[in-house]
Simulated assay, not measured.
Amino acid sequence: MKWFGAILIILTCTWLGFDAARRVSDRPKQLRQLKTGILALEAEMLYGLTPLQEASAHLSTQLAYPINVLFERFSSKLAARGDSAHIAWEESLDETWEMTSLSKGEREVLRQFGQTLGQHDRDQQEKQIKLTMVHLDREEAEAKENQLRYETMLKSLGFLGGLLIVILML
């Protein structure tokens, strides 16, 4: 029975380490998807003159989970209640945030982006999107650096932490 418990502890801790490593490795991927989505939204809005609700709905079918959920909820909130883009973006961001691996820095950048949606003329909107992209580029570089630095360590730490617990318990 002791061995079963020991194996269970090691497997659980290893799983926790791999889960933490997955979140670290998902962050740069999700940032790239987010940047792709924002650039596509810019193209649809500014050059295709597509309404924000339609452009977001279209993007939700093209992007991968969980970023597609953000754009899907944003589109549905715009369609259902006709809220301002800022309120719909904030609510969508709040609803989908736990699904992502993004950090607080990215959340603030996305909140600022949401505050500018639909508030400015075409040139100002384009400048705001470029500013958002600069911030997201910086966050992506940091995320890649963290991935290289911590991903393998977290996997090993999970296993070794479980092993330490088992040794201390015996």
Rank of each mutant, 00 (worst) to 15 (best):
R23C: 03
D83H: 11
A141K: 13
G82E: 12
Q115A: 12
Q124T: 08
I67S: 07
N146A: 14
A80M: 13
L49W: 05
D94R: 09
V166F: 07
Q124N: 13
I38W: 07
A40G: 15
K77M: 11
L131I: 07
H135E: 15
L157N: 08
F4I: 12
Q125W: 03
F159R: 08
K35T: 05
Q53V: 13
E42D: 12
M1E: 14
S101H: 06
G114F: 01
S92C: 11
C13Y: 04
S101M: 08
D94Q: 09
A85V: 04
T12L: 10
R32F: 11
L49Y: 06
L49H: 04
L102D: 05
G161I: 07
D83K: 09
E142L: 15
M99W: 04
F71A: 12
R22I: 14
E145M: 15
L148S: 06
T132M: 02
L31A: 01
V24Q: 14
L49S: 15
S84A: 07
Y65S: 12
G37K: 08
A85R: 00
A64Y: 09
E54Q: 07
I165D: 00
L8V: 14
S60E: 04
Y150Q: 02
T61D: 11
L131D: 06
S25I: 05
F159K: 12
L163R: 04
M1D: 00
D94I: 09
M99R: 13
R73D: 08
W3T: 15
I67C: 05
T132C: 06
R27E: 00
L117Y: 00
S101K: 07
I165A: 01
T96C: 15
E42R: 13
S60F: 01
D26V: 11
R23E: 15
E44F: 05
A20C: 15
A79S: 08
L70H: 01
L49P: 11
Q30A: 06
L93W: 04
L34F: 05
E139M: 11
A88Q: 03
E140N: 08
A6G: 02
V109W: 02
F71D: 00
Q125I: 13
L163Y: 02
Q125K: 06
V69Y: 14
V166W: 03
F18L: 07
I7W: 10
S84C: 08
P66C: 10
L11Y: 14
K130P: 05
M45W: 01
A40N: 03
Q124S: 09
Q125V: 09
G118A: 06
L11E: 12
A40S: 06
C13K: 02
P28G: 10
M133I: 06
L34A: 06
D83S: 08
